[in-house]
């Protein structure tokens, strides 16, 4: 690392001014758990680090206008431990509790999980399934983008953290009949990237799926939505196990996991995904039955 300065802005305007002053050579750091490793290995470059983790206006999360607003300083631990989030967005809560290890979750942020743009990122997979949007500020103004549109290739975010700030993630509040679930398969429970992971968000009525969003990883260069499996979900009765299995089968077919020495061969991972999606649909069915 050849970092020449470490800056700590107190508010967003000051932060943007610092980014502009460094003209693309400064880079935002929140938790830093991924960025530090990338800088150490030369996978990322920066001459100045601008630390946004202590900025008051980027702290905390709240429900505002039918959305959960998770500001950029929120850590995985804070989000996974919040009872209201666990109740309304169990997929997000569980995904955040699956990232890295307790030590990493104590400092790593959800916003960082998105900006790091890894296809296996647990929280980002959940956010894509939940239809979350990102609020991004730059000196050019403010824009809102669907999280799923922020990927420009493997490990490539469309957010330029040398010029822009992801200030908050906005997750829609589920309506009555909506359920969301998350799951992963990994060799051990901590300190381990998933072999496969997935999140589902379903709109249901009377035990039938009206529509659903599925996000899966790491089976593409980004959290991946299997379009045919999502289409197959429409009209499925949640107690129809054969239909749920069929959705899992289609999702597995659409996925394109790589052969990996650490994560298993592509065919094996596809099989796991088929079972994971079916199991998650069964979990969703159980949740719907409880709420009915």
């Amino acid at each position: 690392m050849n970092i020449q300065d470490y800056l700590v802005p107190h508010h967003v305007d000051e932060c943007l001014a610092m980014l502009n002053a460094w003209g693309g050579r400064g880079r935002l750091v929140a938790g830093g758990t991924d960025l530090v490793a990338s800088l150490e290995y030369g996978k990322a470059q920066a001459e100045a680090l601008i630390d946004i983790s202590a900025m008051e206006d980027l702290m905390g999360f709240e429900i505002q206008d039918h959305e959960l607003v998770v500001r950029a300083g929120s850590t995985h631990r804070q989000v996974s431990a919040a009872p209201r989030i666990r109740q309304l967005w169990p997929a997000l809560s569980k995904a955040c509790g699956s990232v890295g290890s307790p030590q990493i979750r104590n400092v790593a942020t959800l916003a960082g999980n998105v900006v790091n743009a890894q296809p296996a990122a647990d929280a980002a997979v959940a956010l894509v399934a939940l239809g979350a949007r990102a609020e991004i500020l730059s000196s050019g103004g403010r824009r809102l983008e669907a999280v799923e549109n922020l990927y420009g290739g493997l490990g490539q975010s469309r957010i330029d953290s040398s010029r822009e700030i992801l200030v908050a993630l906005r997750v829609p509040v589920p309506d009555a009949g909506e359920v969301n679930v998350y799951g992963r398969v990994s060799p051990r429970n901590s300190l381990c990237l998933p072999i496969v992971n997935a999140a589902l968000s379903l709109k249901t009525a009377g035990g039938t799926v009206l529509s659903g969003r599925i996000a899966m990883g790491p089976v593409s260069d980004r959290p991946f939505r299997p379009e045919r499996a999502e289409a197959a979900l429409q009209g499925v009765a949640l107690k129809d196990r054969a239909a749920l299995s069929e959705v899992g089968r289609i999702a597995g077919e659409e996925a394109n996991p790589r052969d990996s020495c650490l994560r298993g061969c592509s065919d094996y991972r596809r099989q796991l995904l088929t079972v994971l999606i079916r199991t998650l649909l069964e979990d969703a069915a159980a949740q719907t039955a409880e709420e009915a």
Partner: peptide, 8 residues
């Protein structure tokens, strides 16, 4: 608990 190896 945090990891000193990843913390500026």
């Amino acid at each position: 608990p945090v990891l000193a190896c990843l913390l500026p």
